[in-house]
Amino acid sequence: MTTATAPTSDTGRIGLADVVSDTLVVTRRGLIRNIRLPQLLVFATIQPVMFLLLFNYVFGGVIGTQIPPAAGGKYINFLMPGLLVQIVVFGAGQTAIGLTEDLNNGVIDRFRSLPMARSAVLAGRTIADLVRNAFVVSLMLVVAFAIGFRYQSSFLGFLGGVALALAFAFTLSWVMASIGLRIKNPEAVQSAVFIPVFPFVFASSVFVPPETMPSWLRAFADHQPVTIIANAIRGLMLGEGILPAGQTVAGQTLLALAWIVGLLVVFAPLAVRLYRRAVT
């Protein structure tokens, strides 16, 4: 069959190089959106910095007297590792919202009709969100250092803590992608992703040690992933003394990694499956 316009040699088969190239194209699109949508950048940067300043200066005086001595006597040292988890949890909802917008304005249909790698749409989105998270985390670290945060362990431990926070952010993006693809409606997704994050962030060790919570709440707080990740980061940055009795830095880090990998193994394939079905 002769054709006037298209290169007929192209079979549409997609190799690894194509997957990488397509993922980069979609990542770039996501980054441009992150940079050029002013609300997004403001929400992503002002909000965490505000949390950092408010919690440190409003509650720091009272809470500072109740935290383990390994924090070096400063609440900011206790707070900062926890806030890293808090900001990535709050920011993760953006993945869901961005995806539902794409679903509803026809962008996903357009992508699906192109001879591109299917996986690139989700991978590009989550990678772009990871880059955004890395930017926000860096900004927050600068502010934290400026107002007195000092890691108490080693520089390597500090870097490990940051890496753990970003790994958790990446996993959460896939969780949120699944939620977004399941719910599909951008307005409904707003409440679906932002309401549940509050109990997870506040009923945790992010702001205060859970020891003083009522036992029923503590049972939840001690075992939910936000606490586990926060404790691991805290241990890595401040040393074993900061952790509740019986916990080790290595043990908490392994537990945190288990959660991160576990959630990723469940939610990444789920998101891909939901994506395949989302538009049909």
Partner: peptide, 29 residues
């Protein structure tokens, strides 16, 4: 374009273009 779209969608996609009901362009670009 000579390709079975049900049996071989990837190949078909190299031959077609789609503009859906909404202008699926990216506002930020």
């Amino acid at each position: 374009a000579g390709i079975d779209v049900v049996a071989d969608p990837p190949m078909a996609r190299t031959r077609i273009g789609l503009a859906g009901q909404f202008a699926a362009v990216d506002e930020y670009q």
